[in-house]
Design a protein around this nucleic acid. Structure first.
Length: 479
RNA sequence: UCCUCAGUAGCUCAGUUGGUUAGAGCAUCUGACUGUUAAUCAGAGGGUCUCCCGUUCAAGUCGGGACUGAGGAGCCA
């Protein structure tokens, strides 16, 4: 019976009027004891339900409060008033769930801050801003699968629990069933993980890449899209302890192929959201304009959100080498005026201020930087012939920073083992990985894209906690 | 983890040099009105000034500490 209702998005787009409809949703506002703005999350727009005076008794009227859930039946008619094309002339209004206005934290007329709503993450979905964000997020996620599926990639589920501790991608969350009060110890006093559930030390994954490479060297092209965990004590607008990462891995790809794919991929999913979430993006664009009114003119975005996205979809990314990036920085007015806090020279890891300068001041568009010094990059990246650099690539996005990190992988067993030895990575625990190089090794490449950072970029939001449903950050694991 | 800033009504904020009973808008409640668009109008209620310790005749206000949050940095996606 409940599935006979029509979603509000469909009703608002309806060409037909005069038809009988059933609609269900939550009250956004109730004006003049007659006009109910009803929302069901299918769109940011509400449908106006008109309950003519006399239709409902006093007791029912008092229960139509913001947040209450209703089942309404009536006729979809052309609205006689301005403000909406169609409305529902109700013949019955049934209250499915009451909402006590004294306790309900969301009130349309209030302007709760994003910080306040973070503490009400279970209710913030009902606000216009978060409704728009999460519909856009959904579209981006769907577009990820569509993009790779259309290209013949295989969606590989890499493990959440791993025993590998050689990935070097930050602090890990330990997974254990050992008791804290009487931890089994070995004779030397260290914890005896042989007693643990898996018989060894295990952690939540920080990357599916190494397992992804096993898939790519059999299926040719794979991608992963799953939760990823980092136990870093990072308190920033762009880090989460639990986030979603997309990691494609492709056999018979070199670094150029890798860049081409990453760029095509990013432009594709943005385009998909623009084609399918126009209203939500326009709402978010307007929100950004309002928010930036409080900022001094020189701190505001040069382009509106929609214009920024169109620009990225229609223009290629800038591609430079690390060495070129260093040269640009050394030649920059900012460097000459000593505006950088950190020194610039070949060999340094680019700091946030350097990346920002390149992306936001110099190129004013996404930039792909390749050919980093091998000393500052991971062991699995392919060594270039110059002996100094590796075939790494980072994609830097305006306002976000690093959105993609990737590389061509070192497929030559000897070079890989040599590098692992130099970086003190125990090869004996990595035989399963090295086997890909022992048995029919191939040139291959891949990258990781932080999904929430992508959502930040597309929605114009500035804090990563506002684009994930239930944010996990240091000292915060509610809901 | 480091630096800076903040915490006052349900929400957003003001609160002077330390000084009597702590202020506004919105929300809520009561009433009026009824084709409204964040409806409007009138009235009412609503406070452990985050917590602890200290200075002082006197602390929302000054000092120390804790907790929480925000922004920036590092780590990174």
């Amino acid at each position: 019976m409940f599935n006979k209702r029509t979603k509000i998005k469909a009703l608002l787009a309806s060409e037909q009027t005069g038809i009988d409809v059933t609609v269900m949703g939550w009250v956004r506002s109730f004006r003049n004891s007659q006009f109910i703005a009803l929302n069901d999350g299918s769109t940011n727009n509400n449908i106006q339900v008109v309950a003519e005076l006399g239709l409902l008794d006093e007791a029912t009227l008092k229960r139509i409060n913001p947040g209450a859930s209703l089942k309404v039946t009536g006729q979809l008619i052309e609205s006689p008033a301005k403000g909406q094309k169609v409305e529902i002339k109700a013949t019955s209004v049934e209250i499915l769930g009451d909402c006590d206005p004294e306790k309900y934290p969301l009130q349309l007329k209030n302007r709760p801050t994003l910080e306040f709503l973070r503490e009400k993450a279970h209710l913030r979905f009902r606000t216009s801003t978060f409704g728009a964000i999460f519909r856009v997020r959904h579209s981006l996620a769907f577009a990820v699968h569509k993009f790779f599926n259309d290209k013949g990639f295989l969606y590989l589920h890499t493990p959440i629990i791993t025993s590998s501790d050689a990935e070097g991608a930050g602090e890990m969350f330990r997974v254990t069933t050992l008791p804290f009060d009487k931890t089994p110890r070995k004779e030397d006093g260290t914890v005896d993980f042989a007693e643990d559930f898996f018989g060894k030390s295990t952690n939540l994954t920080v990357s599916g890449q190494l397992e992804g490479e096993l898939g790519a060297t059999a299926f040719s092209d794979i991608y992963t899209f799953g939760p990823t965990f980092r136990a870093e004590n990072s308190n920033t607008t762009r880090h989460l302890a639990e986030f979603w990462m997309i990691e494609p891995e492709m056999a018979f790809y070199d670094i150029q192929d890798n860049m081409d794919l990453a760029e095509e991929f990013i432009r594709y999913i943005i385009k998909y959201a623009m084609d399918n979430n126009r209203e939500d993006l326009e709402f978010l664009a307007q929100r950004l304009v309002e928010e930036e009114k409080a900022l001094p003119a020189d701190k505001r975005s040069e382009l509106g959100l929609i214009e920024k996205l169109e620009f990225v979809v229609n223009n290629g990314f800038e591609r430079i080498t690390y060495t070129e990036a260093i040269d640009i920085l050394l030649q920059s007015p900012a460097y000459k005026k000593k505006k950088f806090q950190y020194p610039v020279s070949w060999g340094i890891d680019l700091q946030s201020e350097h990346e920002r300068y390149l992306v936001e001041k110099h190129f004013k568009k996404p930039v792909i930087v390749t050919g980093y010094p091998k000393a500052i990059k991971a062991f699995y990246m392919r060594q270039n012939d110059d002996g100094k650099t590796v075939a790494a690539m980072d994609i830097l996005a305006p306002g976000i920073g690093e959105i993609v990190g990737g590389s061509q992988r070192e497929e030559r067993l000897e070079k890989l083992e040599q590098r692992m030895a130099e970086m003190n990575i125990p090869t004996h625990e990595m035989d399963w990985y090295l086997d890909t190089r022992r048995f029919g090794t191939v040139p291959h490449a891949g990258f990781g894209l932080g999904f929430e950072r992508m959502v930040l970029f597309v929605t114009g939001m500035t804090n990563i906690r506002d684009v994930i449903a239930f944010a996990r950050t240091p000292k915060n694991c509610e809901f």
